[in-house]
Amino acid sequence: MHRVSKFLLGLLACVGLLLSSASSRAEFRGADHLAGWWLSVDTVAFPPLWDAGMILAMEELLIIDGQGRFQSRMMMFTTPEASQCRDGSLCSDAQMLVQGSVAVSGGALTFSGLTSTSLTADGAETDRDIRARILPARARWQVEGEATAGTGIMRLRSEAGAAPRIFVKVDPDVLRRVRSGFTAQIISPAQHWRCYLGRVAGDPATTGRLDPDPAVRAYLRAASLAQTIASLRAPPATGQDASRGGTQARAPEHLMVEAHPALPAPATAVERRRLDIMSVILEQVRQGRTWEAATDMVRRAARPADIAIPLDEEARAAWQAVGQDAGLYERLFCHRP
């Protein structure tokens, strides 16, 4: 009997060690893969404020580095201008509100060492409401879900039974392209962004992925190029910045714009003119003209290099199709042109 008891105690100890080891591995795996960009896709925090017309449409974006430092940002659907930087208002297309440290332990996501910025995402009147709803406004969350090196989903509850905040791990450039595909069109983000997101990438809150449908990836490449050209054409920051005690004005931050190696920042008037001409062509095709017709409009005033837009044929065809096919446009943007 004594030998049986010793055997059982030894067995229980081994089981305990195995469970402890498995728990440690699971916890380490979650923390190890926490680094990356996490996009809010729930309807709990900010969509109700859009629907009520209280704030501009914006999505919460949590950016975590490999050392457990985070930035809490609001991804906007507008392009910041130098004049807004000068008066201390919107100076980024993904305005940072808070930064600090984040960790996963014991089934909980915790924030600490918070430092708030003086920036606002939608003006002083609504800043308090926005900051009260961002994830780091609460120090501890119950976490469900899992993350891998490339994908993941986090369901975060303030307490048992509470509606979850849901964040999906995204590739930064994929998110930039998806956003560009929407901002390339003149439509209301509050009314159409989430529907568009579903049409482009399925249901990220269920799949845990932001993976655009192959049929629209070509269009997104063209939209991303158009967004990059628009950001490069923006007037440079000049003058004094009132929010920085009259020091040199900051340049707007274009975090949500994909870098294109074929399009460096313009250094000369000739390079700026090239961007202007490419922008005209892209806009004319977006409005329904063919590439040939749009190019003919500017050919007399352009050099051959000016009209050599760095897009593959599939992307060109997709950009033109969205501009010409009202049914395709409506299916993609949940909106009639």
Rank of each mutant, 00 (worst) to 15 (best):
E271M: 08
A269N: 06
P266M: 04
E283Y: 14
E283P: 01
H254T: 04
V280Q: 13
E283C: 06
Q248M: 12
V280Y: 12
A269H: 02
A267P: 00
R274Y: 00
P261I: 09
V270F: 04
L282E: 01
I277A: 07
A249C: 12
P264I: 03
E253I: 13
M278G: 05
R273V: 00
Q248T: 15
R250Q: 13
Q287C: 07
R272W: 00
P264F: 07
M256A: 14
A249T: 11
E283M: 11
L275Y: 10
I277W: 05
A259I: 05
A267D: 01
R272Q: 12
A262Y: 02
V270R: 15
L263Q: 04
P261G: 03
L275H: 13
R273M: 02
P252L: 02
T268A: 09
Q248G: 07
R274W: 01
P261A: 09
I277N: 04
L275T: 13
T268G: 10
M256K: 03
R272F: 08
E258R: 07
T268Q: 07
L255Q: 01
R286M: 09
P261H: 10
R272D: 01
V285H: 03
E253C: 03
P266D: 02
H254W: 15
P266L: 04
A269M: 13
P266F: 02
E258Y: 04
V280M: 10
I277P: 04
P261E: 06
L255N: 06
A251N: 11
R273G: 09
S279C: 05
M256L: 13
P252N: 07
M256N: 05
V270T: 12
E253V: 15
A259W: 04
Q284G: 08
L282G: 09
A267N: 09
V280N: 13
P264K: 06
V285G: 10
P252D: 05
V280L: 13
R274E: 06
A251Q: 12
Q287G: 15
L263W: 04
R274I: 05
L255V: 12
E253A: 15
R273D: 13
R286V: 02
E258T: 12
L275V: 03
R273T: 12
E258W: 01
S279K: 02
P264V: 06
H260F: 14
E253R: 15
L255R: 14
E258F: 02
A251V: 01
E258D: 10
M256Q: 13
P261L: 01
A251H: 07
L275R: 10
E283I: 06
I277F: 07
A259R: 15
D276L: 13
H254N: 04
Q287D: 11
R250T: 14
P266H: 08
R274Q: 14
Q248S: 15
R272H: 04
A251K: 09
Q284N: 11
M278S: 08
R274G: 10
H260I: 09
P261Q: 06
E253N: 09
V280H: 09
A249F: 14
R272S: 15
R286Y: 03
P264L: 03
Q287H: 13
P264N: 10
E271I: 03
D276K: 08
V285M: 03
H260Y: 12
L263F: 01
E253S: 11
L275N: 10
Q284A: 14
A262W: 00
V285A: 07
A262T: 12
E253W: 05
A259G: 03
V280R: 14
L282W: 08
H254K: 06
I277L: 14
T268F: 11
H254V: 00
A265Y: 06
M256I: 01
R274A: 05
I277Y: 03
V270H: 08
